[in-house]
Computed example of a mutant assay.
Amino acid sequence: MPSYWVHSAPADYDPDSDLRECARAERCSDARLETTDGKTVRRGAFTPRAYCDSCRSIIERAIRELPAYWGRVHATLGQRSQSAGPKVSISKSAPIPLSLAADELLRDMASMMVSWWERVAAVARLKAPDTEASQRLVSYDTVRAACSVLAAHVDALLALEAQPMMRSLSLREAADLPAGTTGLVHRSAEYADVLLELDGAHAGLEVLQLHYRCRRQIGEVDASARRMPTPCRCGFSELFEILGVNGEFSGAQCRQCGSEYTAETYKDLVHEMGDTVRRSGARRRRPSVKWTDDEVTRRA
């Protein structure tokens, strides 16, 4: 039974059998703390819907803020990132005039929000958008129209059942998809269009991810902090590194409780948790999905 029927048919609602964890899991803003094998871990709040009330409010606010962030990200299109390393001589090819990161984010925002707009319009009996035209026209008006509908029908959005939806992923992300996933690979552009089963819980996570990417693109979030593999003593699973004045590792900080660790106390923490800090060195796996290949199409 879709969760939005909880409000329209309360007599059929069984709070003991219908509760589940908030889809934000350990990042839930109203998370529970549990002790497992002597370790304190964060778990999502129990809720009859995909998200607890607190996280639902955060998602709704993020939807309403996305159009303004779209404009601010658009303003960074001409700000190409520059390497901090030494200058080297390269061939005199034409320079890329735009920030590829900003361009990709603007396109993702338009395509994702319009696709969810189409899904919500179907279940809420609203006028459906011209999806193909809207996604082709990457504009502020397109994003604003999509967010306006989704913010007004956020409960319908978060209650959507799983259906196949097209998403663009990097080849590295596509390599980790389950066997049998179908898609079209654009090898020269290093991405793939894939069909994924997405529901309302995925919609909320995509909204929050887009919101975070916007904040990172315009500099509201420090993009240089590396996530550490060892959890904080409070149970929060994501500690982030602290760098010294010369860029060396000098400790870590918890973004949940605010605790800070020096380089030495972080080593003690690693020892306590029984983990080993590992640098990224995993082998890349070949895509285990059913692909067709497109050697011609370019993304930008």
Rank of each mutant, 00 (worst) to 15 (best):
P2Y: 07
S3D: 15
V6I: 14
H7V: 07
Y13I: 08
L19E: 11
R20D: 07
E21S: 12
A23K: 03
S29Y: 06
D30Y: 11
A31W: 03
R32I: 04
T35W: 00
T35D: 05
V41L: 12
R42A: 13
G44V: 03
T47D: 07
P48C: 07
R49D: 12
A50M: 08
Y51A: 01
E60F: 02
I63Q: 01
Y69K: 11
S83C: 12
G85I: 12
P86F: 09
I90M: 09
K92S: 11
A94L: 12
P95H: 01
P95C: 00
I96W: 06
L100T: 12
E104R: 15
L105P: 00
S111T: 13
R119G: 00
V123N: 02
L126T: 02
K127M: 10
A128G: 07
D130S: 06
E132L: 12
R136P: 04
L137V: 10
L137H: 14
R144D: 14
C147H: 01
V149W: 02
H153C: 06
L158P: 00
A159K: 02
A162M: 09
A174K: 01
L184A: 05
H186V: 11
R187M: 11
L205V: 08
E206K: 05
R215Y: 06
R216W: 06
R216Q: 15
Q217L: 14
V221T: 14
S224I: 08
A225K: 13
R227G: 03
R227D: 03
M228F: 06
P229K: 03
P229Y: 06
C232Y: 00
E238I: 09
E238L: 11
L239E: 00
E241H: 06
L243K: 14
E248S: 14
G251C: 02
A252R: 00
S259G: 07
A263K: 04
E264C: 05
E264I: 13
T265R: 08
T265H: 08
K267Q: 15
V270G: 01
E272T: 07
V277F: 13
S280Q: 12
A282G: 13
R283D: 13
R284V: 11
P287K: 02
K290E: 14
E295P: 06
V296K: 11
V296Y: 03
R299P: 04
